[in-house]
Design a protein around this nucleic acid. Structure first.
Length: 884
RNA sequence: GGGAGCGUAGCUCAGUUGGUUCAGAGCGUCUGCCCUACAAGCAGAGGGUCGGGGGUUCGACUCCCUCCACUCCCACCA
């Protein structure tokens, strides 16, 4: 088969992916090999592939393919997450477009639509991952709302409830007025936001609920909440307001009387030193309210609009109300001033709505014990973070974490298994039947119809945190005593987790907690944190900015291998990566380089009657050593998760050492055959290189590996064993470096003297040059004859040095004595000053006294080398003068 | 406001207990080449007083202090 001069990924990718699937190469079953397990960070079921997924899943795939070739039983569990809020809001939007309001539907009707939507759009992202080459065990695909995984979630809830760690209570929570649900602390993003700081006049009451002539000024960013004020607080040490003690003030506009209280929470120096206390709409005010027994008046409804209790501006959105009330205050002379002000405001992570602190009944999971165990697991090193800096972040979170609000006022998700008796008492059981049974123990007259199940569902992360356990054995969560099934026993704990740092608290920390609680050990050994993919100028990729390319377009244009390597080339763990299409181009170019190297090799005809030329024999010997050295280096990088370094090592090995040096050295003259021994070695090297590249570039390596020779059906490079280092002779590599240096110098001379590469030169060498490298330099530098000499004689030519070895090329008629003299003098000056520096160091008594032997010996060697160079350069100068 | 981290070539980054002729790599830039594997290529070149200042040391990109810049995480100053 004739190979095209350019690699065409489109022709090969689908073919090999289908082949891998057909043969179930990705599928894993427990056996007696060592397992290597990864669970995918499950993407949203309705999500589509973006560059962050590409980065993450490429890394996962590299690790899993590497492990597979290392002989481990590699298992990568794919799946998706039901993503409660995100999916529900998509479904709501879709229904709205169809003219259906969620409020008009029953829970069952809504869920029917939601499941329809999930069946239609769910899992698109998984099929996109296939285009990328992800070698997931698709037979094990999971969804967090699969019936048995849902069961695991419910059982977990029941378990913690019975343990006393889950409780329901009325608390100040983060309310998302767009998503219409409470969210956890982690789902609130604080952003500095520009607003106004309003200075309002609160008149002191005359004692009969009428304003006196005295007033105080209160600064607030939220004037629309004044109707919910329960007090105005000052600091007890604030001299300025001592006179206010025991007085009452009137809320502007509505003239309701509220007390002056004293609380040290109030900063004397901030604003006016007076704080309006609004317990229902501010978390810290709520605390103050509790301390002082103040009433809570909730004037904002679930949509963020003022309700009837506000008395004025009823039905207005909170931000509209703010503007309007500012005008009203102004008109009534109650607004002292308003100034621009920037302060942190909480936004919903999912809907980007401004969070409204709201008092409501929610379910919480106690974090203290779980956090303590999970902290220990990282502190002790049982779970390693890469890079390590995340340990600090993790520790800080664990030490300050508050109880986890796990209830959501949504329908899409796992419904909380709490059932209320008519008298308000609660039973928590995994099924309605069990609940009824328990309820009857409390009140024998209760019927199934009397029991009312809690309307809320659980936070999505309350199911995701079980992922590394439940994908293997859904029976286990909630049942620590249950003995693990075969899969769980074999695959758990998983090996490595690759994920983005922004879900370290949402997901990573909580998985560790669940692992500790139910399995008694952490769910993974290493957590590798990727960076965030940004565009060239550092902006986060986002749909609205339109700076995020569609990975599938890139794959179409450059090939999956190119996209993979392009993403990996510049990704140090934990560093954000600055995406630039040129990286993908570089990846494509590398594919092409591999392709063409193969075309060259394949074009040769081997002849076993030819003896290997000395240059080829040397090349084989050298590259064998070089290869082994590189393998060792790459293994080292992998073991430290330095993926881009591993990749770069292979890249340079292939491009520079293999293509530029090795292939050029063994390449037969045009039209001639290659000796069979060298040819065989070359194929072997090439195959080894393919194996090294395969984890990163699975498609092209499979294509070429299959093309190299007739493979048996069912054979694949995927299971070819990783190349192992076999030791190497540093001397051979160093000697070859010397030869490379010589070749480079000679090429320089040719260029400088404008000599054709075809015109053979003679080379005289004075000093220790490895004789076996002579064929190498001769072949690559076009040397006709090489002589080892004591003296260069007096002929005209160019003298140069490689390391400390002097070399000479006779070039009668090409030498410009003045030019040579200038060049040598320049070099001489440098060497002399270098020598002087070294000697100064060596004559420093302190240095001799303190420095270790090794360092001193090294300096002496430098001195010797430099002085021999000086000597040589000086004699070269003399020779030039004598020739004149 | 608290905490963490970073600052090395135009860009992205290496530099592994302070000591190799150590100031590096890839990409980009510039110069010259279509020499039958590859112009998605080949052969070369230029480019950094390692953020500033101080200190410890025989010796500092590396350790300490300080200042400056940037980034991230956490956070109830209205």
């Amino acid at each position: 088969m004739e190979l095209a001069p350019k690699y065409n990924p489109a022709e090969v990718e689908d073919k090999w992916y289908a082949y891998w699937l057909e043969n179930k190469f990705f599928h894993s079953e427990p056996d007696d090999r060592e397992p290597y397990t990864i669970v995918i960070p499950p993407p949203n079921v309705t999500g589509i592939l973006h560059m962050g997924h590409v980065l993450n899943n490429t890394l996962n795939d590299v690790l899993i393919r590497k492990a597979r070739m290392d002989g481990k039983n590699a298992c990568w569990i794919p799946g998706t997450d039901h993503a409660s809020i995100a999916t529900e809001s998509k479904v709501v939007a879709k229904l709205k477009a169809m003219g259906i309001e969620k409020e008009d539907l029953t829970r069952e009707e809504f869920l029917r639509y939601a499941w329809e939507w999930k069946e239609e759009h769910g899992g698109i992202i998984l099929s996109q991952l296939r285009k990328l080459g992800a070698s997931c065990d698709w037979d094990r695909t999971r969804f967090t709302m699969d019936p048995d995984l849902t069961r695991a979630v419910i059982d977990t809830f029941v378990y913690f409830y019975k343990k006393g760690w889950i409780y329901r209570g009325v608390r100040m929570v983060n309310w998302d007025p767009v998503g219409l649900t409470a969210v956890s602390d982690e789902e609130v993003i604080h952003k500095d936001t520009r607003s106004e700081l309003y200075y309002l006049r609160y008149y002191v009451s005359d004692g009969c609920g009428k304003p006196s002539d005295k007033y105080i000024v209160v600064a607030t960013t939220r004037p629309e909440t004044i109707m919910a004020d329960a007090a105005v607080s000052v600091n007890p040490d604030d001299e300025r307001y001592r006179w206010l003690k025991g007085k009452k003030v009137l809320i502007p506009l509505v003239n309701r009387e509220i007390p002056i209280i004293e609380d040290s929470y109030v900063e004397i120096g901030f604003g006016t030193g007076c704080l309006k206390v609004t317990p229902a709409h501010d978390a810290s005010d709520y605390e103050i309210g509790l301390r002082h027994g103040l009433p809570s008046v909730d004037i904002i409804d679930e949509h963020g609009r003022l309700n009837e209790k506000a008395g004025i501006l009823v039905g207005e959105d909170r931000f509209e109300a703010r503007k309007k009330i500012a005008v009203m205050l102004e008109e009534n002379g109650l607004l002292e001033k308003a100034e621009p002000y920037t302060s942190p405001v909480g936004y919903s992570e999912r809907t980007n709505a401004v969070i409204e602190p709201k008092l409501s009944a929610q379910w919480f999971l106690r974090m203290d014990e779980l956090a303590r165990m999970a902290l220990d697991s990282v502190e002790s090193g049982r779970t390693k973070f890469i890079p390590e800096k995340y340990r600090n972040i993790y520790r800080h979170w664990m030490e300050t974490v508050r109880d986890w609000c796990i209830s959501r006022q949504l329908w899409w998700g796992q419904r909380i298994p709490a059932y209320y008796l008519p008298d308000g008492r609660t039973v928590v059981e995994s099924t309605p039947e069990k609940a009824l049974e328990e309820a009857r123990k409390l009140d024998p007259s209760v019927t199934a119809a009397d029991l009312r199940q809690d309307e809320d569902v659980l936070d999505t992360w309350f199911s995701s945190w079980l992922w590394p356990i439940s994908v293997f054995d859904p029976e286990k969560p909630g049942h620590p005593e249950h003995s693990p099934n075969r899969d769980l026993a074999y695959y758990y704990p998983t090996s490595d987790l690759v994920t983005a740092p922004d879900i370290i608290f949402f997901w990573v920390a909580r998985m560790i907690m669940a692992g500790d609680e139910f399995m008694g050990r952490e769910p993974f050994g290493n957590v590798y944190f990727t960076g965030i993919v940004r565009d060239k100028i550092g902006r986060k990729m986002s749909k609205t900015l339109g700076n995020s390319p569609d990975p599938l377009d890139l794959i179409k244009k450059y090939g999956a291998d190119a996209v993979r390597i392009g993403m990996l080339l510049c990704t140090a763990a934990g560093n954000d990566i600055f995406y630039d299409e040129s990286q993908i181009e570089q990846g494509r170019n590398f594919c092409n380089k591999i392709w063409n190297a193969y075309r060259l090799i394949k074009g040769w005809t081997a002849d076993d009657s030819i003896a290997p030329p000395k240059a080829s024999a040397m090349a084989v010997k050298w590259f064998g050593n070089k290869l082994s050295q590189a393998i060792e280096c790459v293994e080292g990088h992998y073991s430290k998760f330095r993926i881009s370094d591993a990749l770069m090592t292979v890249y340079r090995l292939f491009w520079d050492d293999f293509c530029s040096w090795y292939l050029e050295l063994v390449k037969p003259a045009y039209g001639e055959s290659i000796d069979a021994a060298t040819y065989g070695a070359t194929l072997e090297f090439f195959e080894t290189l393919l194996k090294m590249i395969h984890p990163v570039m699975p498609f092209i390596t499979e294509e070429l590996w299959q093309n190299m020779e007739e493979r048996k059906p069912g054979e694949t490079i995927m299971f070819a064993s990783s190349p192992k280092p076999s030791g190497y002779d540093g001397k051979v590599i160093a000697d070859f470096d010397m030869a490379e240096g010589t070749v480079n110098a000679l090429r320089g001379i040719r260029r400088q003297k404008n000599l054709s590469p075809r015109e053979p030169l003679d080379l005289l060498i004075k000093g220790e040059f490895p004789a076996e490298m002579i064929p190498v330099t001769e072949k690559l530098a076009g040397i006709g004859r090489t002589d080892m000499v004591q003296d260069f004689g007096g002929a005209a030519g160019v003298t140069f040095m490689v390391g400390t070895v002097e070399m000479f090329v006779p070039l009668a008629g090409h030498v410009d004595a003045d030019e040579e003299t200038a060049r040598i003098e320049k070099e001489l000056a440098y060497q002399k000053s270098f020598l002087e520096m070294v000697r100064r160091k060596l004559s420093n008594e302190s240095f001799i006294a303190h420095a270790p032997e090794k360092v001193i010996a090294l300096e002496r060697k430098k001195e010797a080398d430099a002085s021999s160079k000086v000597e040589s350069l000086e004699s070269q100068l003399n020779a030039l003068k004598n020739n004149k």
